[in-house]
């Protein structure tokens, strides 16, 4: 299988653990990931006012490129990229005026072929031909959990993991609709498919503080603490995330959380793709565990690949 994959800027520069574990896991599933030629940053934030049409240009340009390369699905892991790409695609599909304006803006865009240096311009309008899927959805709907179970090489023995959705995968519910906003199952089912036990806890779709962690760190410290504490109290050995910013707020800033909230002893934070890659037999050295501030090594300790629980 071959599918277009959009890593986004953060995965290329800082949070490479999410990118490399995704690539390793997909190799084990015989899925070839193709990056759209010449992709740029998606803009991180979907424009929330009716007049900021220009914010749609970057994501639509990426989606149009996928179509030009013959793709009809674009997979992404970062929740921010996912939200921007999916919402921009929906805006173009649902709103003829936005479609017209963003395409008019992008028509004379120039693309340069990296090999031949040939310039292309005068693009066909993008009308929503590409389906944007989060990797969790892609694994559920296109790969299928039975295939993942077949390929498992390690038994994770029901390791207790708290799935953390955060803000952008489930909401706004009118547009994202990957699952029920208040009782989602997508992440839980994935964890069970790779041999973990999904911990149920009330903070799985609460906000970690998002970008407020830069302007008002104390507020994000508290928001992230509430999530981590709840996960821990409910028996989780780690929190699994899909977003580099959730990871930053809960892992990189955990020292500050512990200093502020003395009752909290700490909890590792991992990417869902690290669990997937590990269960599929990928070597520990290529999971990007060195990027974690809260050591997560103990979760990835060798266990004999005997019976796999299904």
């Amino acid at each position: 299988m071959r599918v277009h994959y959009y890593p986004g800027c953060t995965l290329k520069q800082k949070t490479t653990a999410l990118d490399i574990s995704t690539r390793e896991a997909m190799k084990r599933l015989d899925i070839e990931l193709v990056e759209p030629e010449g992709w740029s940053c998606c803009g991180a934030e979907y424009p929330l006012t009716e007049e900021k049409i220009v914010g749609l240009a970057a994501p639509i340009r990426v989606l149009r490129q996928v179509r030009e390369e013959g793709g009809d699905v674009l997979v992404t892991t970062c929740s921010f990229c996912f939200a921007v790409l999916k919402r921009a695609d929906k805006a173009v599909k649902d709103d003829p005026l936005k479609r017209k304006r963003v395409n008019a803006y992008l028509r004379d865009d120039i693309q340069i072929d990296p090999l031949t240096k040939e310039r292309t311009t005068g693009f066909e309008d993008y009308n929503g031909e590409v389906k944007v899927l989060h990797l969790l959805e892609y694994l559920r709907d296109r790969v299928g959990y039975p295939k993942i179970r077949e390929r498992l090489k390690r038994n994770l023995k029901g390791l207790a993991i708290a799935p953390y959705y955060g803000c952008r995968v489930l909401r706004p519910q009118k547009e994202m609709a990957v699952d029920e906003p208040d009782s989602p199952r997508l992440f839980e089912e994935f964890l069970e498919a790779v041999g973990c036990a999904a911990v149920d806890y009330p903070f799985k779709q609460e906000c970690c503080g998002s970008y407020i962690s830069v302007s008002l760190p104390a507020a994000a410290t508290e928001a992230s603490y509430r999530i981590l504490r709840s996960a821990r109290m409910n028996g989780a050995k780690a929190v699994a995330v899909t977003c580099p910013l959730c990871f930053y707020n809960m892992d990189h800033r955990q020292e500050a959380i512990k200093e502020t909230f003395l009752d909290f002893p700490g909890l590792p934070v991992v990417f869902f793709t690290q669990l997937l890659a590990w269960a599929l037999g990928v070597d520990k050295s290529v999971l990007g565990l060195g990027e974690h501030r809260v050591p997560a090594d103990d979760l990835f300790s060798e266990t004999p690949a005997t019976e796999v629980r299904t």
Binding site: C41, G43, A44, E45, S213, V214, P244
Partner: peptide
């Protein structure tokens, strides 16, 4: 900081 948060907060 992850790139996404810089882009995000300035936007």
């Amino acid at each position: 900081l992850p790139q996404q948060v810089l882009v995000s907060i300035f936007r």
